[in-house]
Simulated scan of single mutants.
Amino acid sequence: MSMKKKLGMGVMTASLGLSLIGGGTFAYFSDTETTNNTFAAGTLDLSIDPAKIIDVSNMKPGDTMVREFKLTNSGSLKIDTVNLLTDYKVVDAKGDNAAEDFGKHIRVNFLFNWDKESEPVFQTTLHELKNMDPDVVQKEVWDPLWEQKGGLTAGSANELWVEFEFVDNGKDQNVFQGDQLEVEWNFNATQGEGKDI
């Protein structure tokens, strides 16, 4: 074998050896696993039944009206708080109310049962309810009701009663004859704090 052939064979052998060494650095065992994960948000869904709690006419001072309503949690998360926002508009039939606000003469008594002997758990006027912090009803009415459960759990409901009273103040209340109150109650439900699950 000539020197050229020996030299050529040596270079090829060296090249092959280098390529095997270089290629060997990429040779390893491997295995792959894939996980499929899901994050799904829960729902808050508070419903009120009936949607219209009261609709009366021909009221006179001294009249009282007890109405039942139900708060239902139709969502998947526990409702921790329910704030009540109150708004109303007075429709002044004769335009002679001057500075008198009909809402100051309607007392709202929240009750835990319908019995006439039942003492209100919280009472105020529509005027005061409209102007107070909306979480007051939560603290005065819902908190005592939900104390053991810590809220309104998913799928549960609570029945409540409210008594509206046209307060007879023993004075001339003729300015309210024919007047109407359009009352809107907005129940705002919120969740509790997040936790490890």
Rank of each mutant, 00 (worst) to 15 (best):
G8W: 15
G10C: 10
G10V: 05
V11G: 01
A14F: 03
S15D: 02
L16N: 01
L18D: 03
S19R: 05
A27N: 08
A27F: 14
Y28G: 03
S30K: 11
S30G: 08
T32R: 09
E33T: 11
E33V: 11
T34C: 07
T35Q: 13
N36W: 06
A41Y: 08
G42H: 06
T43H: 04
L44C: 02
I48R: 02
I48H: 08
P50T: 06
A51H: 06
K52T: 15
K52Y: 09
I54H: 09
V56D: 11
G62E: 02
M65D: 14
V66E: 04
R67V: 09
R67D: 09
L71I: 00
N73H: 07
S76G: 01
L77V: 00
D80L: 02
N83T: 01
D87S: 15
Y88W: 01
K89M: 07
K89L: 09
D92F: 00
A93T: 04
G95H: 00
A99M: 11
E100I: 14
H105S: 12
H105Y: 14
R107G: 02
N109S: 15
L111W: 01
L111Y: 07
W114I: 15
K116F: 05
S118Y: 03
P120H: 11
F122D: 00
Q123M: 14
T125R: 12
T125V: 04
H127L: 13
L129E: 04
M132Y: 11
V136F: 08
K139I: 06
W142L: 14
P144A: 02
L145D: 09
E147L: 12
E147S: 11
E147H: 09
Q148H: 05
G150W: 08
G150D: 04
G150K: 04
T153G: 12
T153V: 14
A154H: 02
G155I: 06
A157M: 04
N158F: 10
N158L: 09
E159H: 13
E163W: 00
F164T: 04
D168E: 04
N169L: 03
G170M: 02
K171G: 13
Q173R: 01
F176N: 12
F176D: 10
F176S: 10
F176V: 11
Q177G: 13
G178R: 00
Q180C: 03
Q180F: 03
L181V: 00
L181F: 05
L181I: 07
E182Y: 10
E184N: 10
N186H: 09
N186G: 11
Q191D: 15
D196V: 03
I197S: 10
